[in-house]
Write a protein that binds this DNA or RNA. Structure first.
Lengths: 210, 210
DNA sequence: GTCTATATATGGATAGAC
DNA sequence: GTCTATCCATATATAGAC
């Protein structure tokens, strides 16, 4: 037991505070002072543990982004039909976002703020070309084999992702407009695992002629 | 002719510059200096025309938001089936976003930044309850009459909006990941008017049994 | 209407004591 | 490891001359 307890505590409290502060206001809106306050320490100590705002941000964004592209790799690499994989994806991603509904807007905003930095620093955490490209190929195959309707594979995937993620990105507006409580929104998204998949099935399954 | 020309010119150049600066960096990322530079004047003059950053921002956001909810009113109030209205919406909104692809992320981010302020100051510009509520009712009616498949009307609409808007909100990431040029993206979104509607038709039309 | 110069505030970061 | 005090850069905003 070389390490003492106290340092671990502060370090982690800071990171947790930073997480919610950055996600709340983005990099530009976040204040080191707010992070220090939320962590129950002061700015000096904050800089003692983390070099500067940028490095602290990178830790937070890195984690958020890593989650944003969750088990995509394993899902896409695995066995199963397009529809099965789609269902796995929808289920996994919705589960994540129900717990952390502010992730999408945070990630999208920060990428928009500086696409180059994003590209350079976080590219490695990506669902590398291979698995996803192979999945697109699988979609094309199943279309040719008449298993699902023919359309642009890239667009099919765009539709699935859009329906999954957008409700969360637009949540602040949506809830405000419909006066929906957090709990209500959560339930709506939960039932969506089923209803959205039904919608997708209707859209891509070829009806049997009986 | 009371008004002189020069003041109009600067005033408008500032507003135009502010528009792109705010949309680029959001309220927190925008710099009055950058706006002044882009308008070819200096900060003092900027404050001569516009009281402060906040008021300038409100003008910009107001316009952006007004466009974000475009001809919804007229489309929803008009005649036509759910599918026809949906097609009108998709067409109109995609056309707008193809020209101004950064609007969605800007609007969503700023609402997220301060939902209350949004609610108080910009609520009046909304597609007021009546027309939209009636449209949801119309959806429910057509479902009962067996014209389209039965599902949660609110979710159907959520799906349509998601597929329309999300590609733009995620554009920075999307283009970076697929190395897609602006022009390419534009073309993809244009062809989407047709392909997305086809997708939606498959999802909600009840196939005829012949 | 437009500028230069400057006031004022804020926020990130560091020095140095304990 | 944690604090107080302070530095310094930046950003908004204003005063006042032309």
């Amino acid at each position: 037991m070389d390490k003492k307890e106290p340092d671990i505590k502060s370090r982690d409290k800071i990171l947790a505070a930073a997480r919610s502060e950055f996600i709340r206001g983005g990099f530009n809106g976040a204040r080191m002072q707010s992070i220090a306050d939320a962590a129950g320490i002061n700015k000096a100590l904050l800089h003692y543990y983390y070099k500067n705002k940028e490095s602290l941000f990178e830790l937070v964004f890195n984690d958020a982004f890593a989650e944003f592209i969750p088990k995509l790799h394993s899902i896409f690499s695995g066995e199963g039909s397009v529809l099965e994989k789609t269902e796995q994806y929808v289920d996994a991603h919705l589960s994540l976002l129900i717990e952390k509904p502010d992730l999408p807007l945070f990630v999208l905003t920060e990428i928009h703020r500086d696409p180059e930095r994003f590209f350079e620093k976080f590219m490695n955490k990506l669902p590398g070309e291979p698995p996803f490209a192979r999945f697109l190929q699988q979609i094309a195959n199943e279309m040719r084999e008449g298993k699902i309707r023919t359309m642009n594979p890239r667009e099919l995937w765009m539709n699935v992702m859009s329906m999954t993620v957008f409700p969360f990105a637009s949540r602040p507006m949506l809830q405000r407009l419909t006066l929906m409580a957090d709990r209500e929104f959560q339930e709506l998204m939960t039932q969506r695992k089923k209803s959205m998949m039904q919608f997708i099935r209707y859209a891509i399954e070829i009806p049997v002629n009986n």
